[in-house]
Write a protein that binds this DNA or RNA. Structure first.
Lengths: 224, 224
DNA sequence: GAAGTTTTGTTGTTTTTGCAACAAAAAGGG
DNA sequence: CCCTTTTTGTTGCAAAAACAACAAAACTTC
Protein backbone atom coordinates (compact mmCIF):
# COMPACT_ATOMS: atom_id res chain seq x y z
CA UNK A 1 0.00 0.00 0.00
CA UNK A 2 1.41 3.30 -1.11
CA UNK A 3 0.06 5.23 1.84
CA UNK A 4 2.17 3.22 4.23
CA UNK A 5 5.30 4.46 2.50
CA UNK A 6 4.17 8.06 2.96
CA UNK A 7 3.25 7.53 6.59
CA UNK A 8 6.62 6.05 7.39
CA UNK A 9 8.31 9.20 6.14
CA UNK A 10 6.69 11.23 8.91
CA UNK A 11 8.59 11.88 12.13
CA UNK A 12 5.48 10.76 13.94
CA UNK A 13 5.82 7.16 12.81
CA UNK A 14 9.57 7.01 12.68
CA UNK A 15 10.66 3.62 13.93
CA UNK A 16 7.16 2.17 14.00
CA UNK A 17 7.02 -1.30 12.44
CA UNK A 18 4.54 -1.68 9.58
CA UNK A 19 2.12 -3.84 11.48
CA UNK A 20 1.95 -1.33 14.32
CA UNK A 21 1.06 1.47 11.95
CA UNK A 22 -1.60 -0.75 10.44
CA UNK A 23 -2.97 -1.54 13.89
CA UNK A 24 -3.04 2.13 14.83
CA UNK A 25 -4.80 3.03 11.61
CA UNK A 26 -7.46 0.59 12.60
CA UNK A 27 -7.55 1.68 16.20
CA UNK A 28 -7.94 5.36 15.30
CA UNK A 29 -10.56 4.68 12.64
CA UNK A 30 -8.30 6.26 10.06
CA UNK A 31 -9.60 7.48 6.74
CA UNK A 32 -7.39 8.67 3.96
CA UNK A 33 -8.44 11.11 1.25
CA UNK A 34 -6.73 12.95 -1.60
CA UNK A 35 -7.39 16.59 -2.42
CA UNK A 36 -6.62 18.81 -5.37
CA UNK A 37 -5.19 22.29 -4.91
CA UNK A 38 -7.77 24.70 -3.58
CA UNK A 39 -10.18 22.05 -2.32
CA UNK A 40 -11.74 22.69 1.05
CA UNK A 41 -10.87 19.85 3.41
CA UNK A 42 -12.73 21.22 6.40
CA UNK A 43 -15.20 24.04 6.54
CA UNK A 44 -14.93 26.74 9.14
CA UNK A 45 -17.43 26.23 11.99
CA UNK A 46 -18.14 22.61 11.10
CA UNK A 47 -18.36 19.90 13.77
CA UNK A 48 -15.01 18.97 15.24
CA UNK A 49 -15.16 15.23 15.66
CA UNK A 50 -12.02 14.21 13.83
CA UNK A 51 -8.41 15.29 13.72
CA UNK A 52 -6.53 15.58 10.44
CA UNK A 53 -2.97 14.71 9.57
CA UNK A 54 -1.29 16.05 6.45
CA UNK A 55 0.36 12.97 4.99
CA UNK A 56 1.61 14.53 1.79
CA UNK A 57 1.52 18.01 0.27
CA UNK A 58 0.49 21.19 2.02
CA UNK A 59 -2.66 22.81 3.32
CA UNK A 60 -3.51 26.21 4.74
CA UNK A 61 -5.49 27.00 7.85
CA UNK A 62 -7.73 29.87 6.79
CA UNK A 63 -10.11 32.14 8.60
CA UNK A 64 -12.94 34.14 7.11
CA UNK A 65 -14.02 37.13 9.18
CA UNK A 66 -17.40 38.79 9.47
CA UNK A 67 -16.66 40.98 6.44
CA UNK A 68 -15.68 38.09 4.19
CA UNK A 69 -11.95 38.79 4.30
CA UNK A 70 -9.92 35.63 4.23
CA UNK A 71 -6.64 35.36 6.05
CA UNK A 72 -4.20 32.50 6.07
CA UNK A 73 -3.49 31.64 9.68
CA UNK A 74 -0.89 28.96 9.11
CA UNK A 75 0.60 26.77 6.44
CA UNK A 76 0.67 23.07 7.30
CA UNK A 77 3.12 20.58 5.83
CA UNK A 78 3.36 16.81 5.86
CA UNK A 79 3.30 15.63 9.46
CA UNK A 80 1.29 18.57 10.76
CA UNK A 81 -2.10 18.16 12.39
CA UNK A 82 -5.32 20.10 12.16
CA UNK A 83 -7.99 20.00 14.84
CA UNK A 84 -5.84 18.67 17.68
CA UNK A 85 -6.38 21.75 19.81
CA UNK A 86 -10.13 21.52 19.47
CA UNK A 87 -9.96 17.88 20.49
CA UNK A 88 -7.92 18.46 23.62
CA UNK A 89 -9.57 21.72 24.62
CA UNK A 90 -12.96 20.10 24.15
CA UNK A 91 -14.29 22.55 21.56
CA UNK A 92 -16.93 21.07 19.32
CA UNK A 93 -16.50 23.23 16.22
CA UNK A 94 -13.43 24.12 14.22
CA UNK A 95 -12.87 27.85 14.26
CA UNK A 96 -10.97 27.83 10.97
CA UNK A 97 -11.11 26.11 7.63
CA UNK A 98 -8.51 23.75 6.18
CA UNK A 99 -7.82 24.24 2.48
CA UNK A 100 -5.49 22.21 0.33
CA UNK A 101 -2.62 24.36 -0.92
CA UNK A 102 -1.53 21.80 -3.49
CA UNK A 103 -2.28 18.18 -4.34
CA UNK A 104 -2.40 16.61 -0.92
CA UNK A 105 -3.10 13.40 0.96
CA UNK A 106 -4.80 13.81 4.30
CA UNK A 107 -5.53 11.20 6.96
CA UNK A 108 -8.22 11.73 9.54
CA UNK A 109 -8.72 10.02 12.86
CA UNK A 110 -11.44 9.68 15.41
CA UNK A 111 -11.00 12.48 17.86
CA UNK A 112 -11.91 10.46 20.93
CA UNK A 113 -9.46 7.69 20.10
CA UNK A 114 -6.65 10.15 19.71
CA UNK A 115 -7.09 11.90 23.03
CA UNK A 116 -7.93 8.93 25.24
CA UNK A 117 -5.50 6.27 26.37
CA UNK A 118 -5.59 3.25 24.06
CA UNK A 119 -7.25 0.12 25.40
CA UNK A 120 -5.64 -2.04 22.70
CA UNK A 121 -2.28 -1.20 24.16
CA UNK A 122 -0.87 -0.09 20.83
CA UNK A 123 2.91 -0.09 21.05
CA UNK A 124 3.42 3.42 19.73
CA UNK A 125 0.49 5.06 21.43
CA UNK A 126 2.31 6.28 24.50
CA UNK A 127 5.02 7.74 22.37
CA UNK A 128 2.33 9.29 20.25
CA UNK A 129 0.87 11.17 23.21
CA UNK A 130 4.19 12.84 23.82
CA UNK A 131 4.51 13.68 20.14
CA UNK A 132 1.11 15.29 20.22
CA UNK A 133 2.17 17.45 23.10
CA UNK A 134 5.28 18.45 21.26
CA UNK A 135 3.32 19.20 18.15
CA UNK A 136 0.76 21.40 19.85
CA UNK A 137 3.54 23.22 21.66
CA UNK A 138 5.39 23.78 18.42
CA UNK A 139 2.26 25.15 16.83
CA UNK A 140 1.75 27.48 19.75
CA UNK A 141 5.25 28.79 19.25
CA UNK A 142 4.66 29.16 15.52
CA UNK A 143 1.54 31.18 16.23
CA UNK A 144 3.55 33.39 18.54
CA UNK A 145 5.99 33.92 15.71
CA UNK A 146 3.19 34.99 13.46
CA UNK A 147 1.90 37.39 16.09
CA UNK A 148 5.39 38.83 16.21
CA UNK A 149 5.18 39.55 12.48
CA UNK A 150 1.68 40.96 12.60
CA UNK A 151 2.64 43.20 15.50
CA UNK A 152 5.15 45.08 13.38
CA UNK A 153 4.09 48.55 12.34
CA UNK A 154 4.08 48.86 8.60
CA UNK A 155 4.23 46.36 5.77
CA UNK A 156 7.98 46.66 5.37
CA UNK A 157 8.69 45.59 8.92
CA UNK A 158 6.06 42.86 8.76
CA UNK A 159 7.52 41.27 5.67
CA UNK A 160 11.10 41.57 6.87
CA UNK A 161 10.17 40.01 10.19
CA UNK A 162 8.55 37.13 8.35
CA UNK A 163 11.39 36.64 5.90
CA UNK A 164 13.99 36.71 8.65
CA UNK A 165 12.14 33.98 10.50
CA UNK A 166 11.87 31.88 7.36
CA UNK A 167 15.54 32.41 6.69
CA UNK A 168 16.39 31.32 10.22
CA UNK A 169 14.25 28.21 9.89
CA UNK A 170 15.86 27.34 6.56
CA UNK A 171 19.29 28.02 8.01
CA UNK A 172 20.29 30.06 4.99
CA UNK A 173 19.81 33.51 3.53
CA UNK A 174 18.50 31.75 0.44
CA UNK A 175 15.16 30.07 1.08
CA UNK A 176 11.77 29.26 -0.33
CA UNK A 177 8.50 30.24 1.28
CA UNK A 178 5.22 28.33 0.94
CA UNK A 179 3.25 31.34 -0.32
CA UNK A 180 2.87 33.19 -3.57
CA UNK A 181 2.46 36.98 -3.34
CA UNK A 182 -1.31 36.90 -2.94
CA UNK A 183 -1.08 34.28 -0.21
CA UNK A 184 1.76 36.12 1.51
CA UNK A 185 -0.44 39.22 1.60
CA UNK A 186 -3.20 37.15 3.19
CA UNK A 187 -0.80 35.67 5.69
CA UNK A 188 0.53 39.07 6.70
CA UNK A 189 -2.95 40.59 6.60
CA UNK A 190 -2.06 43.43 4.26
CA UNK A 191 -3.23 44.63 0.88
CA UNK A 192 -1.70 42.61 -1.92
CA UNK A 193 -0.86 45.59 -4.12
CA UNK A 194 0.70 47.46 -1.22
CA UNK A 195 2.81 44.42 -0.42
CA UNK A 196 3.88 44.24 -4.03
CA UNK A 197 5.02 47.84 -3.94
CA UNK A 198 6.97 47.34 -0.72
CA UNK A 199 8.64 44.18 -2.01
CA UNK A 200 9.60 46.00 -5.20
CA UNK A 201 11.14 48.79 -3.17
CA UNK A 202 13.09 46.42 -0.97
CA UNK A 203 14.41 44.69 -4.07
CA UNK A 204 15.43 48.00 -5.64
CA UNK A 205 17.14 49.05 -2.42
CA UNK A 206 19.12 45.84 -2.51
CA UNK A 207 17.87 44.59 0.84
CA UNK A 208 16.34 41.43 -0.53
CA UNK A 209 15.99 39.61 -3.79
CA UNK A 210 13.27 37.23 -4.88
CA UNK A 211 11.92 35.22 -7.75
CA UNK A 212 8.62 33.38 -7.46
CA UNK A 213 8.66 31.80 -4.04
CA UNK A 214 12.41 31.94 -3.61
CA UNK A 215 13.87 34.75 -1.53
CA UNK A 216 17.30 35.97 -0.55
CA UNK A 217 18.06 38.36 2.28
CA UNK A 218 21.10 40.29 1.14
CA UNK A 219 21.89 42.88 3.80
CA UNK A 220 21.52 41.93 7.44
CA UNK A 221 21.62 45.14 9.44
CA UNK A 222 22.71 47.99 7.25
CA UNK A 223 19.46 49.87 7.01
CA UNK A 224 18.52 53.48 7.78
CA UNK B 1 0.11 27.86 54.73
CA UNK B 2 -1.65 30.55 52.76
CA UNK B 3 -0.32 29.44 49.38
CA UNK B 4 -2.11 26.14 49.71
CA UNK B 5 -5.43 27.94 49.85
CA UNK B 6 -4.61 29.78 46.64
CA UNK B 7 -3.47 26.64 44.90
CA UNK B 8 -6.63 24.81 45.77
CA UNK B 9 -8.66 27.50 44.05
CA UNK B 10 -7.09 26.61 40.70
CA UNK B 11 -8.91 24.21 38.39
CA UNK B 12 -5.62 22.39 38.07
CA UNK B 13 -5.67 21.16 41.64
CA UNK B 14 -9.40 20.82 42.04
CA UNK B 15 -10.09 17.74 44.08
CA UNK B 16 -6.50 17.17 45.07
CA UNK B 17 -6.09 16.41 48.78
CA UNK B 18 -3.73 18.74 50.63
CA UNK B 19 -1.03 16.17 51.18
CA UNK B 20 -0.94 15.34 47.48
CA UNK B 21 -0.44 18.97 46.56
CA UNK B 22 2.33 19.14 49.09
CA UNK B 23 3.93 16.04 47.65
CA UNK B 24 3.71 17.42 44.14
CA UNK B 25 5.22 20.70 45.22
CA UNK B 26 8.14 18.74 46.48
CA UNK B 27 8.29 16.47 43.49
CA UNK B 28 8.32 19.37 41.03
CA UNK B 29 10.84 21.38 43.04
CA UNK B 30 8.31 24.16 43.35
CA UNK B 31 9.34 27.68 44.27
CA UNK B 32 6.88 30.40 45.05
CA UNK B 33 7.55 34.10 44.64
CA UNK B 34 5.54 37.32 44.90
CA UNK B 35 5.83 40.16 42.43
CA UNK B 36 4.71 43.77 42.39
CA UNK B 37 2.99 45.29 39.40
CA UNK B 38 5.42 45.87 36.55
CA UNK B 39 8.12 43.53 37.83
CA UNK B 40 9.79 41.33 35.28
CA UNK B 41 9.29 37.70 36.20
CA UNK B 42 11.16 36.25 33.25
CA UNK B 43 13.39 38.02 30.79
CA UNK B 44 13.00 37.46 27.09
CA UNK B 45 15.68 35.09 25.72
CA UNK B 46 16.66 33.78 29.14
CA UNK B 47 17.25 30.07 29.74
CA UNK B 48 14.08 28.04 29.77
CA UNK B 49 14.59 25.51 32.52
CA UNK B 50 11.47 26.10 34.57
CA UNK B 51 7.78 26.48 33.93
CA UNK B 52 5.72 29.13 35.71
CA UNK B 53 2.21 28.98 37.08
CA UNK B 54 0.27 32.13 37.91
CA UNK B 55 -1.17 31.35 41.33
CA UNK B 56 -2.74 34.73 42.00
CA UNK B 57 -3.02 37.98 40.09
CA UNK B 58 -2.21 38.53 36.43
CA UNK B 59 0.84 38.72 34.22
CA UNK B 60 1.46 39.64 30.61
CA UNK B 61 3.51 37.77 28.05
CA UNK B 62 5.42 40.50 26.27
CA UNK B 63 7.67 40.59 23.25
CA UNK B 64 10.24 43.21 22.39
CA UNK B 65 11.16 43.36 18.71
CA UNK B 66 14.38 44.41 17.05
CA UNK B 67 13.32 48.07 17.11
CA UNK B 68 12.49 48.10 20.80
CA UNK B 69 8.72 48.10 20.34
CA UNK B 70 6.98 46.13 23.03
CA UNK B 71 3.82 44.21 22.32
CA UNK B 72 1.65 42.29 24.73
CA UNK B 73 1.20 38.82 23.32
CA UNK B 74 -1.17 37.48 25.93
CA UNK B 75 -2.60 38.21 29.34
CA UNK B 76 -2.29 35.36 31.82
CA UNK B 77 -4.57 34.87 34.80
CA UNK B 78 -4.46 32.61 37.84
CA UNK B 79 -4.12 29.02 36.68
CA UNK B 80 -2.30 29.88 33.45
CA UNK B 81 1.18 28.65 32.67
CA UNK B 82 4.20 30.26 31.09
CA UNK B 83 6.98 28.29 29.47
CA UNK B 84 5.11 25.04 28.98
CA UNK B 85 5.48 25.16 25.22
CA UNK B 86 9.20 25.64 25.42
CA UNK B 87 9.42 22.68 27.77
CA UNK B 88 7.48 20.31 25.55
CA UNK B 89 8.89 21.55 22.27
CA UNK B 90 12.38 21.30 23.71
CA UNK B 91 13.36 24.94 23.21
CA UNK B 92 16.01 26.15 25.59
CA UNK B 93 15.24 29.85 25.68
CA UNK B 94 11.99 31.70 26.28
CA UNK B 95 11.10 33.79 23.27
CA UNK B 96 9.04 36.25 25.30
CA UNK B 97 9.16 37.96 28.66
CA UNK B 98 6.72 37.52 31.52
CA UNK B 99 5.81 40.71 33.34
CA UNK B 100 3.57 41.04 36.36
CA UNK B 101 0.45 43.04 35.48
CA UNK B 102 -0.54 43.52 39.10
CA UNK B 103 0.50 42.18 42.50
CA UNK B 104 0.94 38.50 41.75
CA UNK B 105 2.02 35.17 43.19
CA UNK B 106 3.85 32.87 40.83
CA UNK B 107 4.94 29.29 41.34
CA UNK B 108 7.70 27.78 39.26
CA UNK B 109 8.54 24.14 38.66
CA UNK B 110 11.39 22.14 37.31
CA UNK B 111 10.80 21.75 33.62
CA UNK B 112 12.06 18.20 33.41
CA UNK B 113 9.84 17.03 36.24
CA UNK B 114 6.79 18.50 34.60
CA UNK B 115 7.23 16.88 31.23
CA UNK B 116 8.43 13.45 32.29
CA UNK B 117 6.31 10.78 33.89
CA UNK B 118 6.56 10.87 37.68
CA UNK B 119 8.57 8.14 39.34
CA UNK B 120 7.05 8.90 42.74
CA UNK B 121 3.69 7.89 41.36
CA UNK B 122 2.04 11.11 42.47
CA UNK B 123 -1.69 10.58 42.52
CA UNK B 124 -2.60 13.61 40.48
CA UNK B 125 0.25 13.50 38.03
CA UNK B 126 -1.53 11.56 35.34
CA UNK B 127 -4.47 13.87 35.52
CA UNK B 128 -2.06 16.75 35.40
CA UNK B 129 -0.65 15.60 32.08
CA UNK B 130 -4.07 15.79 30.52
CA UNK B 131 -4.62 19.23 32.01
CA UNK B 132 -1.37 20.40 30.52
CA UNK B 133 -2.50 19.23 27.14
CA UNK B 134 -5.77 21.04 27.56
CA UNK B 135 -4.01 24.15 28.66
CA UNK B 136 -1.59 24.29 25.78
CA UNK B 137 -4.43 23.65 23.38
CA UNK B 138 -6.49 26.42 24.91
CA UNK B 139 -3.56 28.79 24.59
CA UNK B 140 -3.13 27.83 20.99
CA UNK B 141 -6.76 28.69 20.36
CA UNK B 142 -6.38 31.97 22.22
CA UNK B 143 -3.42 32.85 20.04
CA UNK B 144 -5.49 32.09 16.97
CA UNK B 145 -8.11 34.46 18.30
CA UNK B 146 -5.52 37.15 18.65
CA UNK B 147 -4.32 36.55 15.11
CA UNK B 148 -7.89 36.98 14.02
CA UNK B 149 -7.94 40.43 15.60
CA UNK B 150 -4.57 41.47 14.27
CA UNK B 151 -5.58 40.37 10.80
CA UNK B 152 -8.31 42.96 10.62
CA UNK B 153 -7.57 45.94 8.42
CA UNK B 154 -7.72 49.13 10.38
CA UNK B 155 -7.85 49.91 14.08
CA UNK B 156 -11.62 50.08 14.16
CA UNK B 157 -12.06 46.51 12.94
CA UNK B 158 -9.25 45.28 15.17
CA UNK B 159 -10.75 46.71 18.30
CA UNK B 160 -14.27 45.59 17.45
CA UNK B 161 -13.05 42.08 16.72
CA UNK B 162 -11.32 42.03 20.09
CA UNK B 163 -14.24 43.44 22.00
CA UNK B 164 -16.68 41.04 20.40
CA UNK B 165 -14.52 38.12 21.45
CA UNK B 166 -14.27 39.43 24.99
CA UNK B 167 -18.00 39.94 25.07
CA UNK B 168 -18.57 36.38 23.90
CA UNK B 169 -16.20 35.02 26.55
CA UNK B 170 -17.95 37.04 29.24
CA UNK B 171 -21.33 35.97 27.92
CA UNK B 172 -22.64 39.51 28.10
CA UNK B 173 -22.51 42.75 26.16
CA UNK B 174 -21.23 44.31 29.40
CA UNK B 175 -17.76 43.12 30.27
CA UNK B 176 -14.40 44.06 31.67
CA UNK B 177 -11.12 43.62 29.82
CA UNK B 178 -7.72 43.08 31.46
CA UNK B 179 -6.08 46.05 29.70
CA UNK B 180 -6.03 49.79 30.12
CA UNK B 181 -5.89 51.86 26.94
CA UNK B 182 -2.11 51.83 26.66
CA UNK B 183 -1.98 48.08 27.16
CA UNK B 184 -4.84 47.53 24.74
CA UNK B 185 -2.90 49.47 22.13
CA UNK B 186 0.11 47.24 22.77
CA UNK B 187 -2.03 44.14 22.54
CA UNK B 188 -3.56 45.21 19.24
CA UNK B 189 -0.22 46.48 17.98
CA UNK B 190 -1.46 49.97 17.13
CA UNK B 191 -0.59 53.50 18.13
CA UNK B 192 -2.14 54.43 21.44
CA UNK B 193 -3.29 57.88 20.39
CA UNK B 194 -4.82 56.50 17.21
CA UNK B 195 -6.64 53.87 19.24
CA UNK B 196 -7.90 56.57 21.56
CA UNK B 197 -9.29 58.52 18.60
CA UNK B 198 -11.00 55.45 17.17
CA UNK B 199 -12.50 54.48 20.52
CA UNK B 200 -13.79 58.01 20.96
CA UNK B 201 -15.39 57.90 17.55
CA UNK B 202 -17.04 54.57 18.22
CA UNK B 203 -18.41 55.92 21.47
CA UNK B 204 -19.73 59.05 19.77
CA UNK B 205 -21.34 56.94 17.06
CA UNK B 206 -23.08 54.91 19.75
CA UNK B 207 -21.55 51.61 18.75
CA UNK B 208 -19.87 50.99 22.07
CA UNK B 209 -19.59 52.57 25.47
CA UNK B 210 -16.75 52.29 27.94
CA UNK B 211 -15.42 53.53 31.22
CA UNK B 212 -11.99 52.51 32.46
CA UNK B 213 -11.71 48.83 31.71
CA UNK B 214 -15.44 48.23 31.44
CA UNK B 215 -16.98 48.08 27.98
CA UNK B 216 -20.43 47.71 26.51
CA UNK B 217 -21.21 46.78 22.93
CA UNK B 218 -24.45 48.57 22.15
CA UNK B 219 -25.27 47.89 18.50
CA UNK B 220 -24.62 44.48 17.04
CA UNK B 221 -24.78 44.90 13.27
CA UNK B 222 -26.12 48.31 12.40
CA UNK B 223 -22.97 49.94 11.20
CA UNK B 224 -21.97 51.90 8.08
C1' DG C 1 0.67 27.81 -29.86
C1' DA C 2 -3.69 30.20 -29.03
C1' DA C 3 -7.05 31.41 -25.70
C1' DG C 4 -8.16 31.83 -21.18
C1' DT C 5 -6.88 32.10 -16.34
C1' DT C 6 -4.00 33.35 -12.60
C1' DT C 7 -0.39 35.91 -10.75
C1' DT C 8 2.18 39.96 -10.38
C1' DG C 9 3.40 44.74 -10.87
C1' DT C 10 2.03 49.74 -11.43
C1' DT C 11 -0.23 54.02 -10.51
C1' DG C 12 -3.32 57.61 -8.61
C1' DT C 13 -6.63 58.79 -5.14
C1' DT C 14 -8.64 58.54 -0.64
C1' DT C 15 -8.46 57.22 3.94
C1' DT C 16 -6.16 55.84 7.90
C1' DT C 17 -2.42 55.51 10.86
C1' DG C 18 1.82 56.86 13.01
C1' DC C 19 4.13 60.33 15.27
C1' DA C 20 4.94 64.18 18.33
C1' DA C 21 3.62 67.31 21.53
C1' DC C 22 0.57 68.84 24.79
C1' DA C 23 -3.33 69.20 28.21
C1' DA C 24 -6.64 67.32 31.13
C1' DA C 25 -8.06 63.87 34.20
C1' DA C 26 -7.33 60.21 37.33
C1' DA C 27 -4.65 57.50 40.51
C1' DG C 28 -1.24 56.87 43.95
C1' DG C 29 1.75 58.22 47.94
C1' DG C 30 3.19 60.59 51.71
C1' DC D 1 -4.78 67.35 50.99
C1' DC D 2 -1.10 68.38 47.97
C1' DC D 3 2.28 66.76 44.94
C1' DT D 4 3.81 63.44 41.64
C1' DT D 5 3.05 59.96 38.33
C1' DT D 6 0.25 57.59 35.23
C1' DT D 7 -3.41 57.35 32.14
C1' DT D 8 -6.30 59.26 28.74
C1' DG D 9 -7.87 62.41 25.21
C1' DT D 10 -6.83 65.89 21.46
C1' DT D 11 -4.79 67.95 17.45
C1' DG D 12 -1.98 68.83 13.19
C1' DC D 13 1.15 67.01 10.07
C1' DA D 14 3.59 63.65 7.45
C1' DA D 15 3.78 59.03 6.00
C1' DA D 16 1.83 54.81 4.80
C1' DA D 17 -1.70 51.72 3.55
C1' DA D 18 -6.15 50.61 1.54
C1' DC D 19 -8.68 50.67 -2.49
C1' DA D 20 -9.68 50.43 -7.32
C1' DA D 21 -8.57 49.81 -11.84
C1' DC D 22 -5.59 48.39 -15.23
C1' DA D 23 -1.62 46.12 -17.80
C1' DA D 24 1.87 42.91 -18.27
C1' DA D 25 3.68 38.49 -17.46
C1' DA D 26 3.41 33.64 -16.42
C1' DC D 27 1.10 29.51 -16.21
C1' DT D 28 -2.84 26.21 -17.98
C1' DT D 29 -5.31 23.69 -20.97
C1' DC D 30 -6.79 22.16 -25.06
Amino acid sequence: MEILRELKKLALFKGCPDQDIARMKNCFKAEITSYEKGEVIINQSSDANRVYLIVKGEANVEHEDMFGNISIILNLKAGDFFGLEEAYADKNTYKDALVSAEKAIVASFDRQKIISPCSNNCPCHIMLAKDMMKMISARSLALTDKIKHLSQRGIKDKVLSYLETQSRIAGSSYFEIPFNKTELANYLAVERSALSTVLGKLKKEGVIDFDKKRYHIKAKNQEE
